[in-house]
Computed example of a mutant assay.
Amino acid sequence: MGLFKRNPFGHILFLKKWLIRIMGAMTHRRFRGFNELQIEGSEIIKELPERNVLFISNHQTYFADVVAMFHVFNASLSGRVDSIKNVGYLWNPKLNIYYVAAKETMKAGFLPKLLAYAGSVSIERTWRAEGKDVNRQVRMSDISNIGKALDDGWVITFPQGTTTPFKPIRKGTAHIIKRYKPIVVPIVIDGFRRSFDKKGIRIKKKNILQSMEIKQPLEIDYDGETTDEIVKKIEFAIEQHPSFLKVLTPQQIKEQEELNKLREW
């Protein structure tokens, strides 16, 4: 790799590699130390092609979710199954991992700008800006940049576009799937909202058992299925369909509380 070789977005890969190494070492204990990340299904990662893979996930914090995925993906590629033990896997990280994020979030301070250099595909949200509801057109350049990232490697996206659970899936994700025909890998995370603040930077509570389940790629008829059908498939895959909401009986609540105690590390 040439010292000044760049990716399609103009980022110098040598700098990106060192940024991932340093920030990975700094954040490792957040998922194996202060808290414990329980991983399931990471063997799927090694079987994926080098490019045109779209990871879809529910969203709990601005940054911790993505950072955890960078750890898990690179650990899996280095031969670890369902484990991020020994941070040495970051010495040779996969450099073509990207994630979709709101442009205003990635410009809000020095740390977000550093994280953006590590792989952000920044887009303008069409429904929210500066804390207010808006209604604006999708920028085709944003769609093209996601396509450019898929053409170069893997892309992580949070199709609800918010950290609030059970919000509707944005149809833009379905349009991207139909247009670029990526392999779509669902991920379901939990515990991040309890252990970090909303931004995913400050540790709010220690000894929380975080979880990340990587599921088998979705079977999608890219040409035959409608965007609405793909949206529904995504809702179920990342466990954000309204059917996952249910009213619990007092006994079920008690059992759930006992289970949560057992899940504490």
Rank of each mutant, 00 (worst) to 15 (best):
L3C: 06
F4I: 14
K5C: 11
N7K: 04
F9M: 10
F9C: 09
L15T: 12
I20T: 03
G24M: 01
G24F: 01
A25E: 00
M26I: 15
R30Q: 13
N35M: 09
L37M: 10
L37Q: 01
I39K: 04
S42A: 13
S42P: 02
I45Q: 08
I45G: 06
K46W: 00
K46H: 00
E50R: 11
N52S: 11
N58V: 09
H59M: 11
F63V: 05
D65Y: 07
D65V: 07
V66I: 15
A68N: 02
A68T: 04
F70I: 14
N74Y: 01
S76L: 03
S76V: 08
R80Q: 14
R80D: 06
V81W: 00
D82P: 07
D82M: 10
D82R: 08
K85C: 07
N86E: 15
G88H: 12
Y89D: 04
W91Y: 14
P93M: 01
P93T: 04
N96V: 02
I97F: 02
M106S: 10
K107H: 14
A108L: 13
A108C: 10
L115E: 04
A116F: 05
A116N: 11
S120R: 05
V121C: 08
S122W: 04
S122Y: 07
R125F: 09
R125H: 10
E130I: 00
K132T: 05
D133S: 09
V134D: 03
V138R: 03
V138H: 07
R139V: 13
M140Q: 13
S141P: 01
N145T: 09
I146H: 00
G147T: 07
G147P: 01
K148R: 14
A149E: 06
D151W: 08
D152V: 00
G153E: 05
W154K: 05
I156H: 08
T157Q: 08
T157N: 13
F158N: 03
P159V: 03
P165M: 02
F166G: 06
K167S: 10
P168E: 05
P168W: 07
I169G: 06
T173P: 02
A174H: 04
I176H: 04
K178N: 12
I183K: 10
P186N: 12
I187R: 08
G191N: 09
G191V: 12
F192G: 06
R193E: 13
R193V: 03
R194Y: 13
S195T: 08
D197K: 05
K205N: 14
Q210G: 09
Q210R: 10
S211W: 00
S211D: 01
P217Y: 10
L218C: 06
I220E: 04
G224P: 01
K232G: 05
K232T: 13
I234L: 10
E235T: 03
E235S: 10
A237G: 07
I238V: 11
H241M: 03
S243V: 11
F244N: 05
L245G: 00
L248I: 07
T249L: 08
I253P: 00
Q256K: 14
L259F: 11
